[in-house]
Design a protein around this nucleic acid. Structure first.
Lengths: 205, 205
DNA sequence: AAAAAATCAGGGGTTTCCCCTTGTATGATT
DNA sequence: AATCATACAAGGGGAAACCCCTGATTTTTT
């Protein structure tokens, strides 16, 4: 098991390395940007590459894409600070093996490595909470929504209020609010204020 | 030489620890927030404390201030992601011993520790450069805001409500609301609902 | 000493969001 | 023909969040 680690922050890089080694794996090499990471992967084809998403130049996602395109067999684990659904969705398309949030990484990295080693995939548990509603119907949660509902959620991502949406679509504000409720139920979102806006910002586009 | 390290990101914490140990120093303890850091400092009075600036609750700066006020003899080294003049100035007044940018920390931490051990102060070389380039940078709307205000707008971009922000910063909700009003006035934003969130989403980062 | 920043309080007004319910139309299922 | 499911529309009610204002104290900065 050879592992490559890439992260542009020296401290985080060292931390990751340190954790990985403490689990008993061998770290083949490390680097601090996407280009180097790609080169090293091509050169040594490590079993696993742990990549930070936010890197200058080629980011973790770009590298993943190129690794897939080149049909390299290195398995990719991505590390990210924020839970951004858009990125996760893309990452899934590119065939990543692991996806972990840095905040909780400590508790998950070891398990993730175990699973990936076996050939399985592992996604941060903290991410899946938000994905429960997202997963069952393939990659697109929006597909469950009707046309009107989709129009409305589109406008919500533009930070329009129900009132503004109502005006734009020549509807009663109440109608828009009704649609909102339906959307929330369909997606199984928690009962918070502004859930829809928060969800929309992270999931649409 | 006993050293305490505080950082809310597990990876960075581990990385820092790992580096420090590799230089031959002993890490007394670590923690992930300012309150714990302060308690541990009071309890064990380590020789040196390496603190991250961005932490929930008490941040590194707050801890530094309190350490100075309590006339504790622990020497503080601050780690920061962003090079903010305001913070650096304050830090200097609170009598910090070291100030390092995370990006370049690797190359500077060891030297910094050496100097601080001798009783000298050490400031990141990369900071002075950026201080110059930061000065004429008054076009930024954020530069008009005070430190507290910036903290708050940062949390607004993360879609926190005033209540949540108040909890995170240990403030009254009223204080947060007051800051919001001030920010809105300083930026000359229109009188709409949620103006701040909308503005923040589009203008910060 | 004066100005600015930070903290908090009380109270008020408005908006927005969300829930629950009702109603209609349509089209598919039984 | 009757039932069922679904989309769509709209209303009432309530809680939460936001914004505003005045005023006050304390700390920090200048």
């Amino acid at each position: 098991m050879n592992i490559l680690i890439a992260d542009d922050h020296p401290f985080t890089l060292q931390g990751t390395k340190s954790f990985v080694e403490s689990y008993g794996y061998k770290v083949l090499d490390t680097c601090s940007n996407g280009v180097s990471a790609l080169n090293l992967i091509k050169l040594h084809s490590p079993d696993i590459a742990i990549l930070d998403i936010n890197m200058p130049g080629l980011d973790g996602l770009d590298v993943t894409k190129k690794v897939q395109e080149s049909k390299l067999k290195t398995k990719i684990i991505l590390l990210t600070m924020h839970k951004e659904m858009t990125i996760y969705k893309k990452a899934k398309e590119y065939g990543i093996y692991g996806f972990i949030l840095k905040e909780h990484a400590q508790s998950e990295l070891e398990k993730c490595l175990q699973e990936v080693k076996k050939g399985n995939r592992y996604v941060s548990l903290f991410l899946e909470e938000d994905l429960i509603s997202d997963n069952p119907n393939e990659n697109n949660a929006l597909s469950k929504l009707t046309l009107s509902e989709r129009k409305i959620i589109e406008l919500i991502t533009q930070q329009k209020t129900s009132k503004q949406i109502a005006e734009l679509l020549f509807l009663s504000e109440k109608t828009v609010e009704g649609h909102r409720s339906n959307i929330i139920e369909k997606l199984g979102l928690p009962k918070e204020k502004n859930v829809l806006l928060k969800w929309a910002i992270q999931n649409v586009h």
